[in-house]
Amino acid sequence: MERSEIQHRVQKVVSSVLKIDSKEIAPQSNFVFDLGADSMKSVELIAGFEEEFNIEMDEDRAREVQTVAGAVDFIATYVQ
């Protein structure tokens, strides 16, 4: 999978879970600081990524991901 596709789909999930406009989601956006995700939303995001990419993520490491770009990189390790 191309990175750009991963990025696009990640943004889609984030937009849907956090209910914000895709326009406001930049690669360097920090989930907590810029997008306002709390612990509940974090769980949802992980579930959303897992479903979108049909993968099973290591939750311990998933919880360390801080930014959208970080999520893209992390997911890339599962789909490439």
């Binding site: 879970v17 769980v43 949802e44 992980i46 579930a47 959303g48 897992e50 479903e51």
Partner: peptide, 8 residues
Amino acid sequence: IKRLLLRK
């Protein structure tokens, strides 16, 4: 319950 959370 959010559908996404069912499996999780």
